[in-house]
């Protein structure tokens, strides 16, 4: 990285990752996910009974830019556990199915079930897409 100077947004994101044992950066909110991948990841965390902090990246496109710079990961959602990047929707889904996710979260891995389908969200009234 050529730019060594931290910027406030990146510091804030980094602090949020460090301060929250489980934090999900997503499009929309857990109650109202704005993207199927975010919805699925929320549904998985909820189904294993894991409380988590959530950050909606949609209102501030710069969050996504800085987050991706931190994680070196291009897509949303992004899950962090104990300050470590765990993965996006695909990896979280695979880990859930294999029981690794429950292990990483320190939960009892019950019998594995197919990934829960997110509740079909109503078509978003606004088609919000982050183009950054």
């Amino acid at each position: 990285m050529s730019d060594e100077t931290m910027n406030p947004m990146r510091e804030q994101i980094q602090a949020a990752i460090e301060e929250n044992p489980v934090i999900l950066f997503m499009k929309g909110t857990p109650d109202q996910p704005m993207c199927g991948f975010s919805a699925r990841t929320v549904a998985i965390l909820q189904s294993v009974g894991q409380p988590f902090a959530a950050v909606n990246i949609l209102p501030h496109p710069a969050i996504r830019q800085e987050l991706s710079a931190i994680s070196n990961w291009p897509t949303i959602p992004q899950l962090f556990v104990d300050g470590e990047f765990v993965g996006g929707c695909d990896i979280v889904t695979e880990m859930y199915q294999s029981g690794e996710l429950q292990q990483a979260l320190g939960l009892d891995a019950g019998p594995t079930e197919p990934a829960p389908e997110p509740q079909p969200a109503e078509p978003a009234p606004l088609s919000i897409e982050n183009r950054l």
Binding site: W73, P74, T75, F85, V86, G87, I91, E94, R131, L132
Partner: peptide
């Protein structure tokens, strides 16, 4: 897994998400 997926994403760089 993360590193494996990164290899694939890296093929497309900034096109992913765009």
């Amino acid at each position: 897994r993360i590193a494996q997926h990164r290899l694939v994403y890296d093929v497309f760089g900034l096109e992913v998400g765009d």
